[in-house]
Every structure is written in C-alpha cells, then in structure tokens.
Design a protein around this nucleic acid. Sequence first.
DNA 1: TTGTAGGCGTTATCAA
DNA 2: TTGATAACGCCTACAA
Lengths: 329, 329
Amino acid sequence: MKTTIKDIAREAGVSYQTVSKALRGTGSVNEDTAQKIKKIARDIGYVPSIAARAMTTRKSQLIAIFLPQIASSFYHTILQGIENLANEHNYSVLLYLFHNTSLENKLETILSYQVEGIIIFENHFSITLLSRFQAHKIPILFVNSTDIPSNANQIAIDACYGLKLAFAHLAELGHRHVLFALSDHEAGMKRIGELQAMIPRDYGMKLSSKVYCDYYSSEHVFRNFDVKDVQNGVTAIVCTSDYIALPIMTRLQEQRICVPEDMSLVGFDDLEFSAFLNPPLTTIQQPKRELGEKIFQMLFGLMRGETHQSMMIFPKLIVRGTTKMLTSK
Amino acid sequence: MKTTIKDIAREAGVSYQTVSKALRGTGSVNEDTAQKIKKIARDIGYVPSIAARAMTTRKSQLIAIFLPQIASSFYHTILQGIENLANEHNYSVLLYLFHNTSLENKLETILSYQVEGIIIFENHFSITLLSRFQAHKIPILFVNSTDIPSNANQIAIDACYGLKLAFAHLAELGHRHVLFALSDHEAGMKRIGELQAMIPRDYGMKLSSKVYCDYYSSEHVFRNFDVKDVQNGVTAIVCTSDYIALPIMTRLQEQRICVPEDMSLVGFDDLEFSAFLNPPLTTIQQPKRELGEKIFQMLFGLMRGETHQSMMIFPKLIVRGTTKMLTSK
DNA sequence: TTGTAGGCGTTATCAA
DNA sequence: TTGATAACGCCTACAA
C-alpha cells in the first residue's frame, strides 16, 4: 500500500540498500542503475518516510515556532519569512500558539517530535524550560524577548531605538509635551523605564505615560482613552503599537480634536491598515518579512553548530500624515 | 543520551514491552509495576518518540494546513481555533504557506511526514493533487474554496449570504444604486456572478461592479479607486473585504465625501481595526475562531473514518457607523 | 559497485 | 501478567 524502497528494489532487481544510496546520491552506485532506480521511484510515486529516516539520522526536518495567541497580521508576516526560507531548506514548520503558561505543557509534545530547532516569541518561557532543551541540545532562538539569560540566543527589533526615533521626530517638530501610550506588558520593562527617563533629559521634553490596555487590544484602548489625558498641554502622542494609535485617533476625531493639526500621533509596527487611515499614520516600521528570514537563518546556523548568537534589528520612522510641526502655543 | 523505554525497563527490572504497555495503559500490567514504571519515566524525563511510534502505528499525530501567503489577521484567528483544538487532541500543526503553484511542490514533503489530515484554504489546488491524496487515504478538507469537486469535503463561510445581508441592509435604508467593490479573484466566481444578477432583480437596485485589486491589497485599491466611480448616482458601496473598504473610505473623506452622510459603506470580514475606524465600519462579520474550531472538528471526524462532509457557515451583519438611511435624492 | 548485518524506538502478536 | 519475536522504513557501517 505505501511504497518503500524495498518495492523499488524488487522492481529494479537490486537490493534496497542500493536503492537508498541511489536515491540520496550518497555512496557509489552505477550511474545506469541509479537512473533506473530513480525512474522507478518516480513512476510508482515513492515518497520517503521522514519518520523512518529520523529514527536513524535523528534529523526530523522540523522546527517549532511558538507564537503568542494574538490575531495580528504582524506575526503572520514574520511567519511568512520564516516559513518560506525553511521550506527552501527542506524544513517544515510546526506551529504552536500559546496562552500564558501553555508553553511548558507543550514542551513534551515538541520534544517527542524531535524538532531540530525552536523559535519562541516574546519571553513566555522559564529558565527550567531553557535548561531542559539545552540538555537535549536543541537550539532555541528567542525573538523580541526581554529579560532573558544573556547566554540565550536571541534576535530582536530594537523597540527603544524605534521609539527614540519617534520622540526625536516630534522634538524636531517642536513638541515639548508628549503622551506615551503603552500596553500593559511593556510598562514593567526595564528598557522602557530607561527610555522614560532618557527622553525628557535628552529632548527637553515633558513626558506623561499611561497604560491603556494589555497586549495591544484596540478595544481596551478605545474604552480607556480619555481626551482629558491630553488636555493638560500635550501636543503629541507616541504609541507602542498601531493598534493603540488607531482607537486614539478615532477618539480624538470624535471630540473634534484634529490630527495632526491639534495633536500629532505616532504609531508603531506599520500594520497593513496604517497607511490607509485618514490621515495616514506616521509610524515606526518594522522589517517584518526580513525579520522572519533572519530568524530562520540564525536558527539554521545554530542547528549547524554555530555558537551563541545575538542580533538587533533597527526599525525605521515612516513619516506620513499624523505628525505636524507645532505652530501655535 | 536520549532516554527510551528500554532505559526505563532496565531501571524497573522488567522488559521494555511491559513498559510500553504500562505507559500507554493498554494491555494488562500489574498495577504496582505500572505505577513504578510511570514514576521512573517521569523521573528520568522520558519522552516518547513520535517518529518511532509512527513507524508502527502509521499515526503521525500531525495535520497540515495550507494557507495563502496573505498577511491578514483573518487567517491568524482561524489558525488559533484550529491549533487550540488540535492540541487538545494531541495533534500538532504543520503550517505551509503557498504562492500560486507551490502547493503541489510541497505535496511530497507533506506525504513524507505521513500527516493524517490536510486543510487547504481557498481553492489553490488541482484535481491530480486531490486524487493523489485520496490514493493515500489522507482526508483533505477544503475551506472557503470554490469550484471544487462535489465529492470533496468542504467547509465554507457563505460569502454570498453575507453579501446579500449587506445589500438587503442597504435596500432597507433606501439605497437604489450601489457600487460593488471586488477583488480580482472573486470576479470570476460563479456564485458572485449569480449574485450580481440577483441583487438588481430582488432589491430593485442598480448595481455597478468594479475590480480594484487582486487579493485584497489595500494599496491597489487606494491607487485604483476613483471618486468618479461613485459620481453617477451611487449612494452606497459594498466591499468584499474590510481591506477594500478602508482605503475607499479614506479616499472619499479626502474628497470631502462624508461617510455615511454622502455615501454608505459596507465592508466584509470585520477585522480588528474595523470597529475603531472613524466612523466605525459597518461590515459582515465572520465567526473566525469558531470556524477554526469547526474546521478541526470536521477534519478530525474525517480522520476517524467519517464519510464525505460539507458545511456552510453563515456570517452576520454588524451595523456600525458607515451606513445610513438615504434621505435626499 | 553491490549486498549483508545491525540498529533506530516503538508497537503488535502470541506464547509462556 | 509478562516477555520473546517480529515488524515498521530507513540508514550506516562494513564485507563481498
């Protein structure tokens, strides 16, 4: 029913080991018989069993990706970069989405598949997890994770760099009092704290911060944002996500506060919709697809035995229609 | 290095076959020794090898999902539904994204993993592909696909039903001339053609149709939409995606055509951003997560031997701020 | 260049 | 209840 190399061997009148060699091009096989074998393989629709191969080689041709349970196209685009490159290298992608703690529960599953590498987004993990994988010698790559051990492999988009770009842009436009609209999980980050101290100092800017949601929920922002938050002299808002910027812009417009005339607004991520808002959103663009490809390349290197890797990617500012030179006082 | 049931067997002083039985709870094993075996397994961190298991059982605990290469949160949400349920049932998800023709190229890969079921979105496939999988007795479920063989398993959101909802809503509001803004790949669909014939007849409505992009590219729509398209008496626009509705709304507003006062607008999908636009978008909501769960349930049934299945899901109208009763002529 | 022997980790069968 | 034997499909020596 399922065809194996033995079927091919019988057909070709050789031993199945010869078939194995011929099909993979390893070892030495007579050119003619090799051709014959390959032809037969094609004709009967032979497909190698990765499971069987994995048993002897311990190569499953599988990598696992853990993504947060978030319905954002952001991750989907990164996924594209990873998947495309993985496929080119004959790897397939096992996708896992996690709630808060489910990652560790899935640990066993993932080990049982003998994946060759693991990609984890956004620091949902524990040290015990890390050590357990290390014991199995399976490389892990952390993406956009904070507070991870310094010896862990990681690749990240430098969010603080991007935010600085946003503040610098506003400073140049003359803004002196800015609201920093955050998502819950960012509020505790050390680097964000440093940034909050640095901005006023470096740009002579007054900075008000407020948490509007957990994990980029536009709905929460829409509910929590209050125009009073910007009625004390704030002339611009920097958001850590376009998902935060969008509802804020809508709220402002509802209250007849014009963007960017009365209030400048900067988002983060450059999601698909951002360029088509009215006005189009000034934001910090992340090279999503490129990031995906870098992620795979890095993991691939790790799987080939390269040692500890760490990489930063720098986002860039896209000036569109929601920021404007401050004119009146 | 990697621990196996034989390691456990040695430790417990029994044969490895007994360990196998004890761990899976099949066959009869002395309760005490079973407990002992399980404890040892836990202690030494035993993880079963799915590859090895798959060799004898032919169950890989794997399903494959083919998704179009589209950076929309729409698919990501459906994925969530599928993945969550799959994991509950101890299945893992192999994710593949395809360009136009790559599906067939990946066929071999997917067969080599001995996946137990396949989910394919949006009719990117061929008949030969279908028959090849049938030969391997691997069930395939088509999602939102059109023009597929009638004996194929499928689940779909009834887009035409949803669109009818949109037109009916506009008809009720008094609109008599509507622009139907399409994406390229829909233009050729039989059911869409039928719909275009039916709407004028059933609602006494004049219907203009225009293709603005291929595959929901907001960018193309933004470039291609021209206010002249609605200057011949059109009072409302129905779009086949929120990604189409968004740039149209922005274009209209740029030209001081107020939504909904001067022009009503209906989207499709209810993406995350849609509720937070200004004004919030009236649209057709698809039960994305629920669809994902239904998809897995259906595939799971198929994998257990259920016969040909077909299912329709009905979307619903969400009236928000972009549609309005037609007042003046 | 070819084939023999052994093993990868697990499950299934059946005799003890 | 237990364990010996065989098999799953393939790969890696190594010997012919």
